[in-house]
Design a binder for these strands. Structure first.
Lengths: 254, 254
DNA sequence: CCCCTATACGTGTAAATAACCACATGGAGG
DNA sequence: CCTCCATGTGGTTATTTACACGTATAGGGG
């Protein structure tokens, strides 16, 4: 039995039972307990397990099993709620734009029950999500694949976006601030989002609650351009008033 | 026994048993352990295996996130052979085009050990395969997502292709015929391939042996434009002579 | 609350085995 | 004839593992 093979089996058992015990594993594999401890040490270093006296437990909130360290697991239920609200704003035959964000993937999934939609996106994951659907018009902007992401960015992505004029855009961001607008952390993402803003009639900002008051480096735009904002729970009073002043509809689960 | 043949057998055993052991393989094939290690190194570089002390285990994580658990498994070893031959024709810093075919995915995988490549493709799967690589320039043509495929097609895909001029194009097809050239079954695929042909200097047709004498509906092009043809085993004498006449290099495993 | 004991943990050591490296060989193809 | 590639070889280095022994921890009894 190979060392890696043994570690994989331990990981499997760990994922099944949520915990493992050193003494049992030692007997099961016929190796010394020290060996098992070293295995667990490695699994812990890789983020799969958390050691404890006598064994280890599964590290549930690890993103390690996702392809390239994607944080898809963060705030799942918030994104789910947001996606459902977004889907309510969409009608059959609509033309939609989705950016390259995990929230967009959830929205794409929530939209699947609609008919004859047109979707323009720079997200590879959204394309994958919609690859098995029929009767839609799913369009990729093209562009340069961003290292470590499943997003198409750059000049050609912007050109790809601006070829179209969509009814509705669902836009995500890294942070928002009453005075400075909404922002992303990376220029290239922000630029494509700006192109999308120029190419859509109704613009909905989709943000989970953790994004409020969160700063980020690159400004995407001001609140004035928004038709609505979709979030996972009622924002602070201050924000609600601000949205009312600006004439921005605020959607959240009631 | 050919090196390539041995590696394919190791891969088969790997897929069957989920693991292989250096010492056993060495005895089984009658080659030194060092050679086996080099084989495993290659399989690891191609993403099929993960080496471990004493052997290697199957890398299961590679094709998992595909939507409709695709037909990638047809003719695997032929496509693998073709991909390795194709990779030999590529140098660091090359600019490559890959079409939307399963063979292209194998080629992409085989290319991963190169440095600083530029890859233009209309295949979502190729993008996925290359999403975790660094220092490359991976470009998506954009276009309309073809229902039931992971391919981007249509006018904008063609425009996306023709923005570039690549050093080398690896082109697949559904069938080829001495008199009628090489063909695809669907117009939209054929059109993008034609755009690629217009946008590349060296064009290599990649076909497994089953494609010879196979007809298909839409003509892609004539043999005159080809620099070479890559296949998984020695073609019939008739074809070899034809390629010689046409000045087309023919690559197959020896 | 403190202590005691069984159990688990970590380290150091040593031995076996595998991996790595550099170089030599030899054959195929140009 | 030369080059390139795959392979083998010998010496060196690295990894894995078990065992022994001192230390740390949990949990119960006093």
């Amino acid at each position: 039995m190979l060392a890696l093979e043994r570690r994989n089996l331990i990981l499997e058992k760990l994922q099944e039972d949520k915990k493992v015990v050193v003494s049992l594993l030692s007997r099961q594999f016929g190796v010394s307990e020290e060996t098992i401890r070293r295995d667990l040490e490695k699994l812990e270093a890789d983020g799969f397990a958390i050691k404890s006296y006598g064994g280890a437990v599964l590290n549930e909130n690890s993103n390690v099993d996702m392809p390239f360290g994607i944080r898809k697991n963060k705030n799942v239920s918030a994104k789910q709620k947001i996606a459902e609200l977004a889907a309510k704003l969409v009608d059959d035959d609509d033309q939609i734009m989705l950016d390259a964000s995990t929230t967009a993937v959830f929205i794409a999934r929530a939209l699947k029950q609609k008919s004859r939609l047109t979707v323009v996106t720079n997200s590879i994951e959204v394309l994958l999500e919609l690859a098995d659907i029929s009767g839609w018009n799913v369009i990729s902007t093209g562009g340069k694949l961003k290292e470590g992401y499943l997003a198409l960015l750059g000049y050609n992505a912007q050109v790809g976006v601006e070829r179209y004029c969509a009814d509705k855009l669902f836009l995500s961001c890294k942070g928002l601030d009453i005075f400075r607008g909404f922002m992303d952390s990376q220029e290239a993402f922000a630029q494509v989002k700006q192109s999308m803003i120029r190419s859509a009639r109704e613009i909905y900002l989709v943000v989970d609650n953790s994004k409020f008051e969160q700063g980020a480096f690159c400004k995407i735009g001001d609140f004035g351009i928004l038709s609505g904002i979709i979030t996972d729970r009622e924002p602070e009073q201050e924000w609600l008033e601000f949205f009312r002043e600006q004439g921005i509809r605020c959607y959240y689960p009631r």
